[in-house]
């Protein structure tokens, strides 16, 4: 099956490469990748950033940021959220039917664990435990202290008051360090755009939320697997569900404390490690980089003192030893 997909995509890709470039210079590419990696020119991230800039200028204050609770015990794997996300963010899409069918197909898109790509901001994965399927929606977790934000050396990310972590393509140089830093492997890159590639990621539907609408994926969910609201209320809701039904859930709200807390929170009936979630400390990633930077700067300043003294010493020593005005004068003089 894996091989079939590979062959199919390989043919696909070759066709594309041949038509686009007229060349057949392809090395050993990982052909098992889905077509969404070829997507370029997404406008959702830029649109949301521009809206954010406008709103920031008007200066509205919010008391609490928004959050989404994903109840994995309710998710039925229909993938309608994927369709809605693609639709709203103008990513390459397929008919809704194609998404809904994949659960019962064999082979199915669920056969391998997927991640987000340039033209795909959210994906639903399937995991099995004791022959029971578990469906897990994956998208940007919208960290309270985002690793991508602190990794970016041109400050192209922002954590909005609404909770969304937004990306500004007009500053991005394309170093892809945010992709290294993200503990959830969310930011994706438009590798197939040679001139103006950008990072793409879920915007928590900032443009909808700020107009009083639900995020596209939340709105379309018919299984009631997602709830949107203020983070404090959402957390309360999560614990209510756990306490009212302790045998249905494990006592862990994923995202409450992970890497300093996230705006997307998850409930599950089995341990999150079995569902592809990374096991993360409570410490926020930016704290690690900030403390490192602080240490380096302090050490650099401390080191400067003896070094400057050493330089003065060398200069005066050289002056005494006669002739040479500095330590760097060269042999050829003698």
């Amino acid at each position: 099956m894996e091989k079939d997909r590979k062959d199919m995509d390989r043919r696909d890709f070759l066709k594309k490469a041949l038509t686009v470039t007229g060349l057949t210079l392809i090395g050993g590419k990982a052909f098992a990748e889905p077509s969404s990696i070829y997507s370029t020119g997404n406008i959702a991230n830029r649109k949301n950033w521009e809206k954010y800039e406008k709103m920031k200028a008007s200066g509205i204050k919010l008391e609490d940021s928004y959050a989404v609770l994903v109840d994995l015990t309710r998710c039925i794997g229909c993938r309608r959220c994927e369709w809605a996300c693609n639709e709203w963010n103008k990513n390459p899409n397929k008919p809704l039917k194609d998404f809904e069918e994949s659960k019962d197909q064999k082979p199915s898109i669920f056969d391998r664990v997927r991640r987000t790509h340039a033209g795909e901001f959210t994906v639903v994965n399937r995991f099995y435990q004791n022959n029971t399927p578990f469906y897990v929606k994956k998208q940007c977790m919208h960290c309270l202290e985002p690793a991508c934000l602190s990794a970016c050396f041109v400050n192209a990310f922002s954590k909005t008051e609404q909770g969304a972590v937004l990306y500004n393509p007009s500053l991005c140089i394309g170093c892809r360090y945010c992709m290294i830093a993200c503990p959830f492997d969310i930011p994706a890159y438009e590798y197939y755009d040679p001139i103006t590639p950008q990072i793409t990621k879920c915007t928590m539907c900032f443009d909808r939320v700020t107009e009083g609408k639900l995020p596209a994926c939340v709105e379309i969910c018919t299984a009631d697997a997602m709830n949107f609201g203020k983070r404090s209320e959402i957390l309360q809701l999560a614990y209510e569900r756990i306490n009212n039904n302790p045998q249905r859930y494990i006592h862990h709200v994923y995202g409450e404390h992970e890497v300093g807390g996230t705006s997307w929170l998850y409930l599950s009936s089995i341990p999150f490690e079995n569902l592809g979630f990374p096991k993360l400390d409570k410490i926020a990633i930016p704290k690690i980089s900030k403390s490192f930077l602080f240490t380096v700067k302090v050490l650099e300043i401390i080191a400067a003192a003896p070094l400057v003294w050493g330089a003065y010493y060398m200069i005066s020593k050289n002056k005494k030893s006669g002739g040479d005005s500095s330590a760097k004068t060269h042999d050829d003089k003698k």
Binding site: T21, A118, Y191, Y192, P194, I195
Partner: peptide
């Protein structure tokens, strides 16, 4: 042609 065709870099 960009990083995609030239390299094996991925997400």
């Amino acid at each position: 042609y960009g990083l995609g065709p030239a390299t094996n870099l991925s997400d």
